[in-house]
């Protein structure tokens, strides 16, 4: 099999998996074939893209553009609240899940012994918590919190904060571990303690990357915040759902464009930020 190569095998495996998936789900052309009903729906919905509504299509005289602005603001609000909490979770868990604080040159013998026992224990626990937080989708957290806490917008904040905190923690810990160690070694040689080495030697090297990644996650949080509108909070998703259910497609497009604009602004901003910090 040398002439195929390892990458060739990977590609073959992907193709095989794709065929299996299509077979398992029964994805045939028949279900997609444009019948009258489907085609009509499609044309009606996508032609509304060219005439987004400014005023309510239900005739209530409500200003949809203003409503979209309000939805956008609430999308930002919940993304900010969720993300700030996620940052706290991410920094704390990320610290304990990085190997930098418990490996390396030990300061004293007794501390070394103690650390050999509790180090892996705390490290392992942090990794486990991160895996659990990350592997449950924010929408599922939202439904769980709805069942546990009852109806409250605060659910959306926590639903965002937990999986995003887990993801931040994972990436932060990797960034801390991969940051250049030379400054830390120099500090250690000059007699600095563990905390000093960590905060003065390791963290500053990893900080620009961490900030840049956190901003990227904020972009994702904006989209997630919009989606959580389907579960009670009045972010853009809430309005999209409402207008779509009563077939006011023009209104739906106004909200979709608002989300589009919000994501583009965040995307451009984060691009500019990366350009000026990481590249420099």
């Amino acid at each position: 099999m040398r002439h195929v190569g390892r990458r060739g095998l990977v590609i073959l495996a992907i193709a095989g998996a794709g065929v299996w998936a299509a077979w398992y789900l029964g994805l045939g052309p028949a279900e997609l074939w444009p019948n009258k009903n489907r085609l009509g729906n499609f044309v009606e919905f996508f032609s509304a893209a060219f005439s987004p509504a400014v005023e309510s299509q239900g005739g209530s005289g409500q200003n949809i553009a203003l409503q979209a602005l309000r939805g956008t603001w609430l999308t930002v609000l919940f993304a900010l609240a969720g993300m700030s909490l996620a940052l706290v979770v991410g920094v704390v868990l990320g610290f304990f899940a990085s190997s930098a604080w418990w490996t390396g040159d030990p300061a004293s013998r007794s501390w070394r012994r103690l650390r050999r026992v509790i180090g892996p224990l705390i490290f392992g626990t942090a990794r486990l918590v991160i895996a659990l937080l990350r592997s449950v989708h924010e929408i599922i957290w939202a439904t769980l919190f709805l069942a546990a806490f009852g109806l409250s917008n605060a659910n959306a904040v926590f639903a965002l904060a937990l999986p995003y905190g887990g993801t931040l923690a994972k990436i932060f810990s990797e960034m801390i571990d991969e940051a250049p160690r030379s400054a830390g070694h120099a500090l250690r040689g000059a007699g600095a303690g563990g905390a000093q080495v960590f905060f003065l030697g390791l963290l500053p090297g990893a900080l620009p990357d961490m900030a840049s990644y956190a901003f990227y996650r904020f972009e994702c949080a904006l989209r997630a915040s919009a989606v959580l509108g389907f579960f009670g909070v009045e972010t853009l998703g809430h309005f999209i759902k409402q207008s779509f259910k009563v077939h006011y497609y023009g209104e739906v497009w106004t909200y979709l464009y608002a989300l589009f604009a919000l994501v583009i602004v965040a995307d451009l901003w984060s691009g500019a930020l990366r350009h000026r910090t990481v590249a420099a």
Binding site: L27, E31, F45, R223, V227, F260, V263
Partner: peptide
């Protein structure tokens, strides 16, 4: 590309489930 990725998967799925009908295709 930008428009496709600016709209979250969930919202695409919500829209397509109504437009295309039930089944696996809309989610895919």
């Amino acid at each position: 590309y930008i428009f496709a990725r600016a709209i979250p998967e969930w919202i695409w799925a919500f829209l397509l489930l109504t437009l295309l009908g039930l089944g696996a295709w809309p989610a895919v």
